[in-house]
Design a protein around this nucleic acid. Structure first.
Ligand SMILES: NC(=O)c1ccc[n+]([C@@H]2O[C@H](COP(=O)([O-])OP(=O)(O)OC[C@H]3O[C@@H](n4cnc5c(N)ncnc54)[C@H](O)[C@@H]3O)[C@@H](O)[C@H]2O)c1
Ligand SMILES: NC(=O)c1ccc[n+]([C@@H]2O[C@H](COP(=O)([O-])OP(=O)(O)OC[C@H]3O[C@@H](n4cnc5c(N)ncnc54)[C@H](O)[C@@H]3O)[C@@H](O)[C@H]2O)c1
Lengths: 230, 230
DNA sequence: AACCGCTTGTGAACGCCTGAACAAAGTCGC
DNA sequence: GCGACTTTGTTCAGGCGTTCACAAGCGGTT
C-alpha cells in the first residue's frame, strides 16, 4: 500500500484534528516523544475513543501498547490538514477586530500569513498593522491576483460584508472566514465559515437560564467540557 | 393551555434561534410586519423546513397562510433565549482581542453588558476601554460578587487561561466564553464555549486542499452556504 | 520462546440532527 | 358563503456523529 487511502474525513473530525495538532506542537516543544490517546484526549478536551476514531481516518498512526509518536503524528496531521506550505490570506476591514487579527502572531506559526490588509477609511489606509501597510479596498482584485491568496477574512460592518464577499469570490478567493453577523451567499465551490460571537453569548445565556429554570428535568448535557465550534 | 410546554431544545437549534432573532430585529427596524419561513430562512442561511422545525420547539408561533408576525416572533424568541434582562459579563485579558470585544457595541444591543474589564499589565490597568476602566485582576472575585456577573470571557494568553477560569468559577461565574487556544476543564454545572480562530482557518485550508486534490469523488457538501458554529 | 499487560484500531449500537413530504388551517377572492 | 391557494406544523426516513466495548497487536519480562 504505497499511498494512504483517500477516505472521506467528516468536517467535525477535521476541526478536532487541528486541535490535536496544536496540542502535539506543545508536547514536542516540551521534549515528549510519545503520547497515549488518553493523555492526548484529555489535553484536547475530547473522549479518548473519539480521538482514536478521528485518527483512524488517516490510517494507523500509532503503535499498540506504546502510543503515538509525537513527531510522527504531528507530521501526519500537518500533511492531512493541508501540508506545510503557508497559505496567503487577505483581511478586509481593519477596524478593532481586524486590527487584532492582523496583529496576532498565532496564525503565522500555523502556516497562515496575511499578505494584504484592506480598508475604505482614509484615516486607516496607510497605517502599519502587524508589519503590513493597510491598502485601499480598491486594490482588492489586484492584490488577490498578485498574491494568489486563497483565504479571505471579512471583518467589515455587516451591511457591506456581502459586497466584499462577492468581490473576493470574483477575484478568485474560494475560502472565506466571516465575522460579520450576516449569512453570506456564495456560489457552489466556495466555502464560508462564520464566527458569530453574539450567538455564542446567547447560547450561554440560554444554558444558564435552563439550568436555573428547569432543574427537575435536566437537559442532555454533553459529557465533557468543551462546546464544539462547529 | 396557559403556559408553553417546557420541551427540550437542542443546542444546535438554540444557536440558530439566536440568528433568527437578529434577522427579525433587522426586519422590525425596516418596518416589516410579517415574514414567511422561506424569506426568514433565506436571510438566516438555513433550510426553510429546518427553520419551521426549530420554531416548533416554542409551540405554534405563526399563522398558516400568512406567515409569522415579526414583532410577535421576536418577543417569543427573546423570551425563549433568556428574557429581556441584561446579563452582566466580565472580560479578563484586555489585550488586542479583549479591547476589540470591550469596545464592541453589538453585544449591548443584544442584552449583554460588560461590567468589568480585568488585566494584570500595569500599563493597561487604568485605561478607559469602551466606557469602562480596566481594573487589576486581583479585584476579580470582588467584582463578580458585587455585580453578580454570570458570564466570563477569557482573552488572556493560553498559559494562564485555566487559572483565570478557575478563579471565575470559584467566584460564581457559571458560563464561560474562551478565546484562548486551550481546553478548559471545569466542574459540572459550568458551561464553556470555545472560539478557536486558528481551527477555523485550518478547516478552510483542508476544504480547499480537498477541493483541488480529489475532484473525482466529491465530498458531501452541505447544501446551503453557512458553516455552523458549534 | 512464550506470556502478560498495555494501548491501539474498529465494529456496532445509539441518539441527534437534517431534509423532504404531507396534512391541517387560515385567508383571500368571488 | 364557499372554494381554492398559501403557508404553517408535524411526521417520517435518512445520514452523521458519538459512544461503548472488544479483539488485535506490540513491547517488555521471565
Ligand atoms: N468585538 C468586535 O469587535 C466584534 C464582535 C462581534 C462581531 N463583530 C463584527 O465584526 C465586524 C467588524 O467589527 P469591528 O468592531 O472591528 O468594527 P469597526 O467599525 O471597528 O471596523 C470595521 C472596519 O471596516 C472598514 N470598512 C467599512 N466598509 C468597508 C468596505 N466596504 N470595505 C473595506 N473596509 C470597510 C471600516 O473603515 C472599519 O475600519 C462587524 O461586522 C462586527 O459586527 C465585531
Ligand atoms: N487575533 C487575536 O488577537 C487572536 C486570535 C485567535 C486567538 N487569540 C487568543 O486570544 C488570547 C488573547 O489574544 P490577544 O491577541 O489579545 O493577546 P494580547 O497579548 O494582546 O492580550 C493578552 C492580555 O492578557 C493580559 N494578561 C496576561 N496574563 C493575565 C492574567 N493572568 N490575568 C489577566 N490578564 C492577563 C495581558 O496583560 C494582555 O493585556 C490569546 O490566548 C490568543 O491566543 C487571539
Amino acid at each position: 500500500m504505497p499511498e494512504s487511502r483517500p477516505r472521506i474525513i467528516p468536517e467535525a473530525t477535521v476541526a478536532r484534528l487541528a486541535v490535536y495538532l496544536r496540542v502535539l506542537a506543545g508536547l514536542a516543544d516540551g521534549g515528549r516523544s510519545h503520547v497515549s490517546s488518553g493523555e492526548l484526549a484529555s489535553a484536547a478536551g475530547v473522549n479518548p475513543a473519539g480521538l482514536r476514531k478521528d485518527l483512524s481516518y488517516l490510517g494507523p498512526c500509532g503503535v499498540r501498547g506504546v502510543g503515538y509518536s509525537v513527531a510522527g503524528l504531528r507530521d501526519r496531521l500537518t500533511e492531512a490538514l493541508g501540508g506545510e506550505r503557508s497559505r496567503a490570506c487577505v483581511l478586509v476591514g481593519i477596524g478593532r477586530l481586524g486590527s487584532a487579527l492582523a496583529d496576532y502572531s498565532g496564525f503565522a506559526s500555523r502556516g497562515f500569513q496575511f499578505v494584504g490588509l484592506l480598508d475604505t477609511d482614509p484615516a486607516t489606509v496607510g497605517h502599519q498593522v502587524g508589519g503590513l501597510t493597510v491598502r485601499p479596498v480598491a486594490e482588492l482584485e489586484g492584490l488577490v491576483a498578485e498574491t494568489q491568496a486563497t483565504i479571505g477574512v471579512i471583518t467589515t460592518p455587516a451591511d457591506v460584508a456581502q459586497t466584499v464577499c462577492d468581490r473576493l469570490v470574483a477575484a478568485g478567493v474560494r475560502s472565506i472566514l466571516n465575522f460579520a453577523p450576516v449569512a453570506l451567499s456564495v456560489p457552489a465551490g466556495v466555502d464560508v465559515r462564520k464566527v458569530d460571537l453574539s450567538v455564542e453569548l446567547q447560547v450561554l445565556a440560554f444554558l444558564d437560564q435552563q439550568r436555573d429554570g428547569a432543574p427537575p428535568v435536566l437537559a442532555p448535557v454533553r459529557a465533557t467540557a468543551q462546546g464544539g465550534v462547529r
